[in-house]
Structure formats: C-alpha cells, structure tokens
Design a binder for these strands. Structure first.
Length: 279
DNA sequence: GCCCAGGCAAACT
DNA sequence: AGTTTGCATGGG
C-alpha cells in the first residue's frame, strides 16, 4: 500500500479559515474517506492524494507537481478569496451563526458529470449511504487507477448498461435515473459543456430533461459541478428552517455567492449540536 | 416495527 | 396547477 502513492507532496500555505473536514464532509462531494484523524484520501479526475492540514497549510501527499497544476489547484478553488466571502456573508445577521460554525467550507470545483451523477444518487438518501453507493459505482465501472483506486465512470461507460447491471450498487430506484442521465449526456441531448455559461434558467431546464433530475438535483449539480455560485439548492427538509432564518431570501449583494451561503447554512443546520434539527 | 435520509415521477384531485 | 403517494435501501 505504501508504494501506491507517488513519493511526492504539495504544500499550500496560508489557507486562513479553511477547514478540511467541513469542506470534504459537508455533503458537497462523496469521494473522500477519512482514513485517520484529519487525513482524507480521495480521487479527483484520475488523481489520488491524501489531504491533511498542518496549521494553516493544506498538505497533499501523493500529489505530483503535474497533478497540482492539472487538478488540485482548481479543485480547491485556491484563487477565490474566502476571507472576503465570509465577511460579506457574516455581515448579514441571519447568516452570522452559520458562518461562525461552518465558515471553513470552500466550494470545490468538481467534475460536472460526477457532480450530476452523485446528486442524482443523493435523492431521498443520506450522505453515508450515498458515499457507499458512489464507491461501489467507481469500483464496479470506473477505470482502474494505480494503487487499486478507480476513476469515476464517465457517461460512455454507463450509457449501455441496464438497471440490472447496476444492482450491485444497491442504489434502488435511482439506478434508472443515473442511466437516463448517462444516455442523454452521451447522445448530446444534455450538453454538459454548455452548463457553465448558459443562462441559469436554461441550464436548469436542460438538466431537468433527465428523468430523476428535479429542481434540487439540478441546482446541486450546477453549484458543485459547474461552479454556478448563484445557485441556492433548497429541498423540503431545509425549506422550513430557511423560512425562519431567511424569510426574505438573500439580499441582492449576496446573490453572486448564494451557493456558498447555502452550503454553510446546510452544514450548520444539519450538524450543529446547539441547533436542534427541526428548527 | 417505526421514522428518516441533500427528491422526484406518477397519479391523483 | 397544486397535492399526495410510492419508491429501494439502510441506519438509528
């Protein structure tokens, strides 16, 4: 196992306010595993690394310089100033507690197809089980990588399969949704490359052509897979709480970073022990 | 057994 | 066009 990770590492200093566990376990991504206290192992775009914090530095063990410039720099969105975002969000009183509790979250720039697929699998499901289904999906259909890891299977690798083929995933009724997404992406009916720049309403409409993709999954895919920070995914679970916290929605000044606010609120309301669920 | 989980499709009024 | 119900699976 020790030779599975390339003998190099990358250190990213001065990540003030960054919280690795919050970021990787807040429910925006499903491909990281905490292998020991504070150490996470993950696969992103055919690259593997072990991530941990040393003070305010993010350490990526096993990351080559090439992987850093090709994958990790973008993935962790290191060129966005989160100090400024936190300041802006916390200045709006309804968000202050959420920023205090979950302000270490950064929105990861995930692969678009992976985000779409994993959030299709997320519906009426919980984060631990989603992670398990995604792991089985990659092990079963993903391209093998050095060290026994697997890439996330692309649309081409899933488009020809049947729901019975996906039975080992134990994804339940979501299996046929995932296959419909793969077919529509593969055929060009859904053009992922357009989703980053298309007007939001058109991007949502395109994604919702997929059976099993509604407003919530579409917004999650756009936020986490296409870096549309103006998306604010809301489901029935969070809606009741949001009406209390944000009766009038976000002020216009915060709309460009609505997705960051949403994810901090989501994590806060889900996990803060001082804020009982149900609100 | 029950209820819930990052919803949605289908079938109802 | 709004509302209700079923859905696969697993954990608490």
């Amino acid at each position: 196992m020790q030779s599975l990770v390339a003998p190099s590492s990358v250190v990213l200093p001065n990540l003030n306010g960054f919280h690795l566990r919050q970021t990787l376990q807040c429910g925006q991504c499903f491909r990281w595993r905490e292998i020991s206290e504070g150490v996470f192992e993950g696969v992103v775009r055919n690259a593997v690394c072990r991530a941990s914090m040393q003070g305010t530095s993010l350490v990526l063990d096993g990351a080559t310089e090439e992987d850093f410039t090709r994958v990790w720099r973008c993935y962790f969105d290191l060129d966005t100033n989160y100090d400024a975002v936190r300041l802006a969000l916390a200045a709006y009183p309804p968000l202050a507690d959420a920023v205090r509790y979950a302000g270490g979250i950064r929105i990861l720039r995930q692969d678009g197809w992976e985000a779409l697929a994993t959030f299709i699998l997320s519906q009426n499901n919980n984060i631990v089980r989603i992670t398990g289904i995604v792991a089985r999906l990659c092990e079963t259909f993903g391209q093998p990588l050095p060290g026994g890891y697997h890439a996330f299977p692309g649309p081409a690798q899933l488009a020809g399969l049947t729901p019975e083929d996906l039975a080992p995933l134990r994804a339940g009724f979501r299996a046929r949704y995932l296959l419909d997404a793969a077919c529509r992406v593969q055929s060009g009916d859904v053009d992922l490359t357009a989703l980053s720049s298309l007007p939001l309403s058109q991007a949502r409409a395109m994604l919702m052509r997929i059976v099993g993709v509604g407003p919530k999954v579409a917004d999650c895919a756009l936020l986490f897979g296409f870096y549309r920070l103006e998306c604010f995914p809301v489901d029935v679970w969070i809606a009741r709480a949001l009406r209390e916290v944000l009766p009038d929605g976000l002020p216009a000044s915060l709309l460009p970073v609505a997705g960051i606010a949403q994810q901090m609120l989501f994590h806060y309301m889900r996990t803060c022990p001082e804020r009982p669920t149900g609100v």
